[in-house]
């Protein structure tokens, strides 16, 4: 966390090289969160790019409080929520529905993909964010609760319940 914070502060002082390191350290969490909200790889990619652009432009407004990931992911979340909202306004329901790939490939990477697909297709928006922030984002439940504005207990229990659901679905798929 300290290192990420340092990078943001360096960026604010005009050190553009800091952006690349920041990017490398945080890209999985940023993309994962965006994907968990918009459920569309293209939109998630756009949001990812936009997130870093905003980090670059607004690094001066960041106040060091030891919670740089929360700041970054809040930016991502706001952008993603805006995207979802503007999409509903334009009524493009087809894009919204994540259609899982129905293959019979049981290689490990295909199974990984299958779990992610069923996460996107079957969990609620809140569950998706909790699970992705904890797994891909490596965030603590306390931090997740703060970002999503939910009680700590909710984050904990929804996380465990969601994983159990995903596990059962995967086991059924493999039968």
């Amino acid at each position: 966390m300290k290192e990420i914070e340092k990078k943001i502060l360096q960026l604010a002082q005009g050190d553009q090289g800091a952006l690349e390191l920041l990017y490398e350290r945080t890209k999985g969490a940023v993309y994962g969160l965006a994907l968990s909200i918009v459920r569309n790889p293209q939109d998630a990619e756009d949001i990812m790019q936009d997130t870093y652009l905003r980090i670059y432009r607004s690094s001066g407004s960041y106040r060091a409080r030891g919670k740089p990931m929360a700041w970054i992911l809040t930016i991502t979340r706001n952008l993603a929520m805006d995207k979802v909202r503007s999409r509903t306004a334009r009524e493009l329901p087809l894009e919204e529905d994540w259609i899982p790939d129905q293959g019979s490939d049981f290689s490990e990477s295909a199974l990984d993909r299958m779990v992610l697909d069923s996460l996107l297709a079957r969990l609620t928006e809140e569950e998706r964010q909790i699970v992705v922030l904890y797994t891909a984002g490596r965030l603590k439940h306390r931090e997740i609760a703060r970002i999503l504005g939910i009680p700590l207990g909710t984050s904990l229990s929804k996380y465990h319940r969601s994983l159990s659901k995903l596990r059962k679905w995967l086991e059924e798929e493999q039968k």
Binding site: Q16, G28, L35, Q49, L53, D112
Partner: peptide
Amino acid sequence: ETNQTIANRIKRAVDASVPDVLPKLLEQI
């Protein structure tokens, strides 16, 4: 499968699908 292996799968699947927007980003900047 355990809940932990499922969590690992999600992490790997996300990591494997992260696009590289850095070149485009730097251009845009």
